[in-house]
Computed example of a mutant assay.
Amino acid sequence: MSSPEIPFANYQYEIYLRGSMMNQRPRRPLDWQRLEEQAAATLARGPWGYIAGGAGRGDTMRANQAAFDRWALSPRMLRDVAQRSTARTVLGTPLPAPVLLAPIGVQTLAHPDGELATARASARTGVPLVTSSASSFTFEEIAEASGDTPRWYQLYWPKDRTIATSFIRRAEAAGYSALVVTLDTWLLGWRPMDLDEGFLPFLWGEGNVNYLQDPAFRALLAAPPEEDMQAAIGQFAFQFSNPAVTWEDLAFLRETTELPIVLKGILRADDARLAAEHGVDGVIVSNHGGRQVDGAIGALAALPEVVDAVGDRLEVLFDSGIRGGSDALKALALGARAVLLGRPYMWGLATGGEDGVVDVVRSLLAELDLAMALTGHRTIDDVDRSALVATP
């Protein structure tokens, strides 16, 4: 992890020096489009479709990218940026930069080490991982792999509250410091890439280990999963999420834990105001990376309205569409307290395991540091909407 004396931007000099002095080229492309292509060539069609696919025709995924194109950074000159800081504390979690690794399930589809590799990369870079309920390893195993680096836990709200309570208690015991509740996946979106392959890993027991090993979940089974896996998977499919949950049910979470509660999937100002009224601590503006509703608004396009509505009452974070440091800076300039990086670190995981994730994260941090400096900002807290101009 970079220290204040060694800016993240210096990563580029490491690369140049290795190339010039030792004739060593980067192990993976640093251009995210080429890295994505390499990951696609590495994986079979089923796993790749699960990682890369979106809902319907993919219009929401394209809208996420187009929303970034509607804003341009506006550099300012002759400002002292020799000493810089990207550090920020978000919901009590100190961050070396306002970046977290988004919750992504079933990471063993990309690499055998899955979330353990990502957690080790988190420990090496200092960028926290938000662990998914649908991980291929248990919350506890992932926490151990991430060491002393802060980590958050993401909950898919199950139908039975005893399972939700058990999951939250396990996360607390494993040292997770915030609870992220995903709101936009009560039902799976229409995902043609997965449907074309008939590919849903949970149905053969991949990505549901946290359920299969949970005491509250196992108490609902007539026989343990080791004796009747198909019945256990059927119970998992029934319990995975609860489309009957409403705003009033948030009181249960607040009564269950003292961890900061963050709602992921907010895209409207009125929903953000309801979140504030119901006592949560933060929201994540996100459309699930375009995987749920086709034809939805680009997440960045929704961000300013949410910030204006509740930014003085809640921590507002951003997810869906971040591809590089300049993207991250645009979201931060529009008021996000932090951003979540999603698919790009999965491309790194697919092409290089733990080292691949580290390379992607260090590249993002370096570009964010450079973009901040080259637009005339010494600290991330100096960045605001004056750093942007709207494009035609």
Rank of each mutant, 00 (worst) to 15 (best):
L73E: 05
D31M: 01
R62L: 08
P75E: 02
N23I: 06
G49I: 02
A82F: 13
E37G: 06
M61L: 04
Q24A: 15
A52C: 05
R27L: 15
P47D: 06
R27F: 15
A67E: 07
R79M: 15
W32H: 02
R79T: 10
D80I: 09
M22I: 11
R27M: 15
G53T: 03
I6V: 10
R27T: 15
G54Q: 00
Q65E: 03
R18S: 06
R76G: 07
R25L: 07
P26E: 03
R45E: 10
A66R: 13
D31F: 03
D59Q: 08
Q83H: 12
R84D: 12
Y50A: 00
A39E: 12
Q83E: 14
T60F: 05
R76M: 14
L73K: 02
F68G: 00
R70S: 02
A66L: 12
A9P: 03
R25E: 15
Q12W: 13
G46R: 08
A40T: 11
R57S: 04
Q83A: 10
N23D: 11
A82E: 15
T60H: 04
A63P: 05
A39F: 07
T42C: 11
A9Y: 05
L78I: 13
W48F: 09
R76Q: 13
M22K: 09
D69K: 00
A39P: 08
W71C: 02
Y50T: 02
F8T: 08
A55W: 04
R70D: 04
N10V: 13
R28K: 10
W32S: 01
G56A: 06
A52D: 10
A52E: 08
L35Q: 08
L73D: 04
G49D: 03
A39T: 11
A52P: 05
M22D: 11
Q24T: 10
G53K: 06
T60L: 04
F68Q: 01
W32E: 07
G49S: 03
